[in-house]
Simulated assay, not measured.
Amino acid sequence: MRSLRTTLGAALAAVVLSAAPAMAEGEDDRFTVEDTRITESSGLAASRAHPGVYWTHNDQDGPRVFAVDSRTGETVATITLRGIGTPRDMEAVSVGPDGAVYVGDIGDNLDGSWDHVWIYRFPEPKRLRDQAVDATQFTVRYADGPRNAEALMVHPTTGRVYIASKHEDGGGLYEGPARLSAGGPNVFRRIGEVPWVTDGAFSPDGDELVLRGYFSARAYAWKDGRLGAEKRLNAPIQRQSESVTYTVDGSALMYGSEGTGSEVVRVPVEGARPAPSGSGSPAPGASGVTPGTPGGGGDGGDGNATVGALVLAGAAALVLLWRRARRRG
Protein backbone atom coordinates (compact mmCIF):
# COMPACT_ATOMS: atom_id res chain seq x y z
CA MET A 1 0.00 0.00 0.00
CA ARG A 2 1.31 3.46 -0.88
CA SER A 3 2.42 5.69 1.97
CA LEU A 4 0.42 8.77 2.90
CA ARG A 5 3.26 10.97 1.64
CA THR A 6 3.15 9.28 -1.78
CA THR A 7 -0.61 9.66 -1.94
CA LEU A 8 -0.42 13.32 -1.01
CA GLY A 9 2.32 13.93 -3.60
CA ALA A 10 0.23 12.32 -6.32
CA ALA A 11 -2.83 14.29 -5.28
CA LEU A 12 -0.89 17.56 -5.30
CA ALA A 13 0.44 16.77 -8.76
CA ALA A 14 -3.13 16.19 -9.90
CA VAL A 15 -4.14 19.58 -8.52
CA VAL A 16 -1.29 21.29 -10.39
CA LEU A 17 -2.05 19.51 -13.64
CA SER A 18 -5.77 20.24 -13.43
CA ALA A 19 -5.05 23.91 -12.74
CA ALA A 20 -2.74 24.30 -15.74
CA PRO A 21 -4.39 25.53 -18.94
CA ALA A 22 -4.83 22.68 -21.38
CA MET A 23 -3.96 22.79 -25.05
CA ALA A 24 -6.98 22.07 -27.22
CA GLU A 25 -6.44 19.35 -29.78
CA GLY A 26 -5.09 20.78 -33.02
CA GLU A 27 -3.77 24.03 -31.55
CA ASP A 28 -0.26 25.10 -32.49
CA ASP A 29 2.10 24.45 -29.59
CA ARG A 30 5.53 25.92 -28.90
CA PHE A 31 8.23 24.36 -31.03
CA THR A 32 11.95 24.39 -31.76
CA VAL A 33 13.21 25.19 -35.25
CA GLU A 34 15.16 22.06 -36.13
CA ASP A 35 16.63 23.10 -39.50
CA THR A 36 20.31 23.98 -38.97
CA ARG A 37 20.19 26.23 -42.05
CA ILE A 38 17.88 28.60 -40.13
CA THR A 39 20.29 30.52 -37.93
CA GLU A 40 18.73 34.01 -38.02
CA SER A 41 14.97 33.51 -37.93
CA SER A 42 14.02 37.18 -38.10
CA GLY A 43 10.41 36.96 -39.26
CA LEU A 44 7.48 34.66 -38.56
CA ALA A 45 4.06 34.36 -40.20
CA ALA A 46 1.30 31.77 -39.89
CA SER A 47 0.36 30.14 -43.18
CA ARG A 48 -3.26 30.58 -44.20
CA ALA A 49 -3.17 27.74 -46.69
CA HIS A 50 -1.48 25.12 -44.48
CA PRO A 51 -2.68 24.93 -40.85
CA GLY A 52 0.10 24.64 -38.30
CA VAL A 53 2.80 25.81 -40.73
CA TYR A 54 4.87 28.98 -40.21
CA TRP A 55 6.96 30.91 -42.70
CA THR A 56 10.38 32.15 -41.64
CA HIS A 57 13.71 33.20 -43.18
CA ASN A 58 17.26 34.25 -42.38
CA ASP A 59 18.56 37.84 -42.33
CA GLN A 60 21.52 37.53 -44.65
CA ASP A 61 20.65 34.80 -47.09
CA GLY A 62 19.76 34.02 -50.66
CA PRO A 63 16.22 34.59 -51.94
CA ARG A 64 14.58 31.79 -49.97
CA VAL A 65 12.06 31.22 -47.20
CA PHE A 66 11.25 28.16 -45.13
CA ALA A 67 7.92 26.54 -44.20
CA VAL A 68 8.21 25.03 -40.71
CA ASP A 69 5.71 22.58 -39.21
CA SER A 70 4.85 23.68 -35.68
CA ARG A 71 4.06 20.11 -34.64
CA THR A 72 7.58 18.84 -35.33
CA GLY A 73 9.76 21.92 -35.83
CA GLU A 74 10.90 20.43 -39.13
CA THR A 75 11.14 22.33 -42.40
CA VAL A 76 8.51 20.95 -44.79
CA ALA A 77 9.37 23.19 -47.76
CA THR A 78 12.16 25.51 -48.88
CA ILE A 79 10.87 28.11 -51.33
CA THR A 80 13.36 29.86 -53.61
CA LEU A 81 12.14 33.20 -54.97
CA ARG A 82 12.64 33.55 -58.69
CA GLY A 83 12.71 36.81 -60.68
CA ILE A 84 14.09 39.12 -57.99
CA GLY A 85 17.53 40.53 -57.20
CA THR A 86 19.91 39.51 -54.43
CA PRO A 87 18.42 40.24 -50.98
CA ARG A 88 20.42 42.53 -48.67
CA ASP A 89 18.79 42.15 -45.24
CA MET A 90 15.48 40.28 -45.04
CA GLU A 91 13.83 41.08 -41.73
CA ALA A 92 10.12 40.33 -41.85
CA VAL A 93 7.42 38.15 -43.38
CA SER A 94 3.62 38.45 -43.44
CA VAL A 95 0.71 36.72 -45.17
CA GLY A 96 -1.90 38.91 -46.86
CA PRO A 97 -5.61 38.42 -47.53
CA ASP A 98 -4.75 37.81 -51.18
CA GLY A 99 -3.18 34.48 -50.25
CA ALA A 100 0.33 35.80 -50.89
CA VAL A 101 3.43 35.83 -48.69
CA TYR A 102 5.18 39.20 -48.34
CA VAL A 103 8.88 39.27 -47.41
CA GLY A 104 10.41 42.53 -46.19
CA ASP A 105 13.99 43.09 -47.34
CA ILE A 106 13.91 46.24 -45.21
CA GLY A 107 16.87 46.03 -42.84
CA ASP A 108 19.52 48.75 -42.88
CA ASN A 109 21.94 48.44 -39.99
CA LEU A 110 23.68 51.68 -40.95
CA ASP A 111 20.40 53.61 -40.46
CA GLY A 112 20.16 55.27 -43.83
CA SER A 113 22.83 53.85 -46.11
CA TRP A 114 20.27 52.73 -48.72
CA ASP A 115 17.84 55.13 -50.34
CA HIS A 116 15.43 52.29 -51.06
CA VAL A 117 14.54 48.81 -49.79
CA TRP A 118 12.41 46.02 -51.23
CA ILE A 119 9.35 43.89 -50.61
CA TYR A 120 8.96 40.52 -52.31
CA ARG A 121 5.57 38.88 -52.85
CA PHE A 122 4.75 35.34 -53.94
CA PRO A 123 1.60 33.19 -53.77
CA GLU A 124 1.48 30.58 -51.02
CA PRO A 125 2.15 27.24 -52.75
CA LYS A 126 -0.79 24.85 -52.74
CA ARG A 127 1.61 21.98 -52.15
CA LEU A 128 4.46 22.22 -49.67
CA ARG A 129 7.65 20.91 -51.23
CA ASP A 130 11.05 22.34 -52.16
CA GLN A 131 10.47 24.48 -55.22
CA ALA A 132 11.22 27.76 -57.00
CA VAL A 133 8.34 30.23 -57.41
CA ASP A 134 7.97 33.47 -59.32
CA ALA A 135 8.00 36.49 -57.01
CA THR A 136 7.20 40.16 -57.58
CA GLN A 137 9.69 42.75 -56.34
CA PHE A 138 8.52 46.14 -55.08
CA THR A 139 10.81 49.10 -54.45
CA VAL A 140 10.11 51.03 -51.23
CA ARG A 141 11.12 54.55 -50.24
CA TYR A 142 10.21 56.49 -47.10
CA ALA A 143 8.75 59.95 -47.45
CA ASP A 144 11.06 61.29 -44.72
CA GLY A 145 14.26 59.57 -45.84
CA PRO A 146 16.04 56.20 -45.44
CA ARG A 147 15.90 54.27 -42.19
CA ASN A 148 16.34 50.85 -40.63
CA ALA A 149 13.32 48.58 -40.15
CA GLU A 150 12.57 45.03 -39.07
CA ALA A 151 8.76 44.83 -38.99
CA LEU A 152 6.44 44.50 -41.98
CA MET A 153 2.71 43.85 -41.50
CA VAL A 154 -0.02 43.27 -44.10
CA HIS A 155 -3.51 44.15 -42.90
CA PRO A 156 -5.72 41.02 -43.08
CA THR A 157 -8.73 42.75 -44.65
CA THR A 158 -7.49 45.79 -46.59
CA GLY A 159 -4.24 44.20 -47.80
CA ARG A 160 -2.37 47.43 -47.08
CA VAL A 161 1.28 47.05 -46.12
CA TYR A 162 2.82 48.78 -43.08
CA ILE A 163 6.43 49.00 -41.89
CA ALA A 164 7.67 49.88 -38.41
CA SER A 165 11.14 51.41 -38.32
CA LYS A 166 13.68 50.54 -35.65
CA HIS A 167 15.67 53.11 -33.68
CA GLU A 168 16.98 53.27 -30.11
CA ASP A 169 15.10 56.53 -29.57
CA GLY A 170 11.87 55.09 -30.97
CA GLY A 171 10.68 54.46 -34.48
CA GLY A 172 7.80 55.29 -36.74
CA LEU A 173 4.90 53.38 -38.23
CA TYR A 174 4.80 53.81 -42.01
CA GLU A 175 1.84 53.27 -44.29
CA GLY A 176 2.26 52.08 -47.85
CA PRO A 177 0.04 52.96 -50.79
CA ALA A 178 -3.37 51.28 -51.08
CA ARG A 179 -1.85 48.90 -53.63
CA LEU A 180 1.82 48.22 -54.20
CA SER A 181 3.14 48.90 -57.69
CA ALA A 182 5.95 46.95 -59.33
CA GLY A 183 6.41 49.74 -61.87
CA GLY A 184 7.95 52.40 -59.66
CA PRO A 185 8.91 53.40 -56.10
CA ASN A 186 6.25 52.84 -53.43
CA VAL A 187 6.38 55.74 -50.97
CA PHE A 188 5.66 54.86 -47.33
CA ARG A 189 4.51 57.74 -45.12
CA ARG A 190 4.87 58.06 -41.35
CA ILE A 191 1.51 57.84 -39.55
CA GLY A 192 2.50 57.13 -35.94
CA GLU A 193 5.24 56.83 -33.33
CA VAL A 194 6.29 53.44 -31.97
CA PRO A 195 9.01 52.14 -29.61
CA TRP A 196 12.02 50.02 -30.58
CA VAL A 197 10.42 47.32 -32.78
CA THR A 198 11.83 44.02 -34.07
CA ASP A 199 8.60 42.60 -35.51
CA GLY A 200 4.85 43.06 -35.64
CA ALA A 201 1.59 41.40 -36.64
CA PHE A 202 -2.06 42.27 -37.11
CA SER A 203 -4.70 40.16 -35.39
CA PRO A 204 -6.63 38.00 -37.86
CA ASP A 205 -9.69 40.27 -37.62
CA GLY A 206 -7.53 43.36 -38.15
CA ASP A 207 -8.64 45.08 -34.95
CA GLU A 208 -5.26 45.06 -33.21
CA LEU A 209 -1.62 45.52 -34.10
CA VAL A 210 1.03 43.83 -31.95
CA LEU A 211 4.58 45.18 -31.98
CA ARG A 212 7.43 43.52 -30.10
CA GLY A 213 10.94 44.56 -29.20
CA TYR A 214 13.80 42.89 -27.41
CA PHE A 215 12.30 43.24 -23.94
CA SER A 216 8.58 43.92 -24.36
CA ALA A 217 5.54 43.68 -26.59
CA ARG A 218 2.57 46.00 -27.00
CA ALA A 219 -0.86 45.70 -28.56
CA TYR A 220 -2.52 48.73 -30.14
CA ALA A 221 -6.17 49.08 -31.02
CA TRP A 222 -6.46 49.56 -34.78
CA LYS A 223 -9.28 51.64 -36.21
CA ASP A 224 -9.57 53.50 -39.51
CA GLY A 225 -5.95 52.76 -40.31
CA ARG A 226 -4.45 54.39 -37.23
CA LEU A 227 -2.98 53.40 -33.87
CA GLY A 228 -5.32 53.54 -30.88
CA ALA A 229 -5.14 52.62 -27.21
CA GLU A 230 -1.99 50.76 -26.15
CA LYS A 231 -1.64 47.73 -23.86
CA ARG A 232 1.47 45.94 -22.66
CA LEU A 233 1.56 42.20 -23.33
CA ASN A 234 3.10 39.39 -21.32
CA ALA A 235 5.82 38.43 -23.82
CA PRO A 236 8.45 35.75 -23.09
CA ILE A 237 12.10 36.62 -22.49
CA GLN A 238 14.10 35.01 -25.28
CA ARG A 239 17.70 34.78 -26.40
CA GLN A 240 17.17 37.44 -29.08
CA SER A 241 13.54 38.49 -29.40
CA GLU A 242 13.05 38.85 -33.14
CA SER A 243 9.61 37.81 -34.32
CA VAL A 244 5.91 37.56 -33.52
CA THR A 245 2.76 36.40 -35.30
CA TYR A 246 -0.77 35.36 -34.43
CA THR A 247 -1.96 31.81 -34.87
CA VAL A 248 -4.31 31.74 -37.83
CA ASP A 249 -7.37 31.47 -35.55
CA GLY A 250 -6.25 34.39 -33.35
CA SER A 251 -6.20 32.33 -30.15
CA ALA A 252 -2.51 32.89 -29.40
CA LEU A 253 0.63 34.81 -30.26
CA MET A 254 3.75 32.95 -31.37
CA TYR A 255 7.04 34.59 -30.33
CA GLY A 256 10.29 33.63 -32.08
CA SER A 257 14.01 34.17 -31.57
CA GLU A 258 17.23 34.07 -33.58
CA GLY A 259 19.96 31.46 -33.37
CA THR A 260 20.36 27.82 -34.34
CA GLY A 261 17.69 25.65 -32.72
CA SER A 262 15.65 28.69 -31.72
CA GLU A 263 12.39 28.21 -29.87
CA VAL A 264 9.01 29.61 -30.85
CA VAL A 265 6.87 30.18 -27.76
CA ARG A 266 3.07 30.14 -27.78
CA VAL A 267 1.29 32.64 -25.51
CA PRO A 268 -2.53 32.45 -25.39
CA VAL A 269 -4.43 35.66 -26.10
CA GLU A 270 -6.64 36.64 -23.17
CA GLY A 271 -10.32 36.51 -24.05
CA ALA A 272 -9.78 34.99 -27.49
CA ARG A 273 -12.19 32.35 -28.75
CA PRO A 274 -10.54 30.08 -31.32
CA ALA A 275 -12.29 29.51 -34.62
CA PRO A 276 -13.92 26.08 -35.06
CA SER A 277 -11.58 23.25 -36.05
CA GLY A 278 -10.76 23.32 -39.73
CA SER A 279 -11.76 26.93 -40.19
CA GLY A 280 -9.20 29.41 -41.43
CA SER A 281 -11.16 32.44 -40.31
CA PRO A 282 -10.71 34.09 -36.90
CA ALA A 283 -13.38 33.92 -34.25
CA PRO A 284 -15.19 37.09 -33.20
CA GLY A 285 -13.39 38.81 -30.37
CA ALA A 286 -10.10 37.05 -31.10
CA SER A 287 -8.19 40.25 -31.64
CA GLY A 288 -6.02 40.49 -28.56
CA VAL A 289 -5.88 41.16 -24.85
CA THR A 290 -9.21 42.23 -23.40
CA PRO A 291 -9.01 45.91 -22.34
CA GLY A 292 -8.52 46.39 -18.64
CA THR A 293 -7.45 42.83 -17.85
CA PRO A 294 -4.19 42.15 -16.01
CA GLY A 295 -3.24 39.83 -18.89
CA GLY A 296 -2.22 42.90 -20.84
CA GLY A 297 0.56 43.78 -18.43
CA GLY A 298 4.02 42.43 -17.88
CA ASP A 299 3.16 40.88 -14.53
CA GLY A 300 1.11 37.99 -15.87
CA GLY A 301 -2.62 37.61 -16.48
CA ASP A 302 -5.84 36.45 -14.90
CA GLY A 303 -5.15 32.96 -16.20
CA ASN A 304 -1.82 32.77 -14.37
CA ALA A 305 -3.35 34.20 -11.21
CA THR A 306 -6.17 31.65 -11.30
CA VAL A 307 -3.72 28.78 -11.77
CA GLY A 308 -1.63 30.01 -8.84
CA ALA A 309 -4.67 30.36 -6.59
CA LEU A 310 -5.90 26.86 -7.41
CA VAL A 311 -2.49 25.32 -6.76
CA LEU A 312 -2.11 27.11 -3.43
CA ALA A 313 -5.63 26.17 -2.35
CA GLY A 314 -5.05 22.55 -3.28
CA ALA A 315 -1.73 22.45 -1.46
CA ALA A 316 -3.26 23.98 1.66
CA ALA A 317 -6.08 21.44 1.67
CA LEU A 318 -3.66 18.54 1.31
CA VAL A 319 -1.46 19.82 4.14
CA LEU A 320 -4.54 20.10 6.37
CA LEU A 321 -5.51 16.50 5.58
CA TRP A 322 -1.98 15.33 6.29
CA ARG A 323 -1.94 17.05 9.70
CA ARG A 324 -5.29 15.52 10.63
CA ALA A 325 -4.06 12.09 9.59
CA ARG A 326 -0.95 12.49 11.77
CA ARG A 327 -3.08 13.46 14.80
CA ARG A 328 -5.30 10.43 14.28
CA GLY A 329 -2.21 8.23 14.00
Results as ranks from 00 to 15, higher is better:
329 G>K: 15
266 R>Y: 08
8 L>A: 15
259 G>M: 04
238 Q>M: 11
95 V>R: 09
195 P>M: 13
30 R>M: 03
14 A>V: 06
103 V>Q: 07
126 K>T: 15
219 A>E: 15
302 D>F: 10
247 T>I: 07
315 A>L: 11
324 R>T: 09
257 S>K: 01
207 D>R: 15
210 V>E: 04
102 Y>L: 13
174 Y>M: 14
125 P>Q: 10
215 F>T: 14
245 T>H: 03
281 S>K: 14
262 S>I: 02
253 L>S: 03
26 G>F: 00
57 H>T: 07
15 V>I: 13
254 M>H: 05
165 S>P: 00
31 F>P: 01
132 A>H: 04
34 E>W: 05
316 A>L: 15
311 V>W: 02
51 P>W: 02
153 M>L: 11
159 G>D: 07
290 T>K: 13
70 S>H: 09
305 A>Q: 14
265 V>F: 01
138 F>C: 04
274 P>T: 08
277 S>K: 14
150 E>S: 02
59 D>Y: 01
256 G>W: 00
292 G>M: 11
80 T>Y: 11
167 H>Y: 11
246 Y>W: 12
124 E>N: 07
50 H>R: 10
132 A>Y: 00
242 E>P: 01
183 G>K: 09
161 V>K: 04
34 E>D: 13
234 N>C: 10
53 V>P: 02
120 Y>S: 04
212 R>I: 14
315 A>Y: 01
21 P>R: 08
31 F>Q: 02
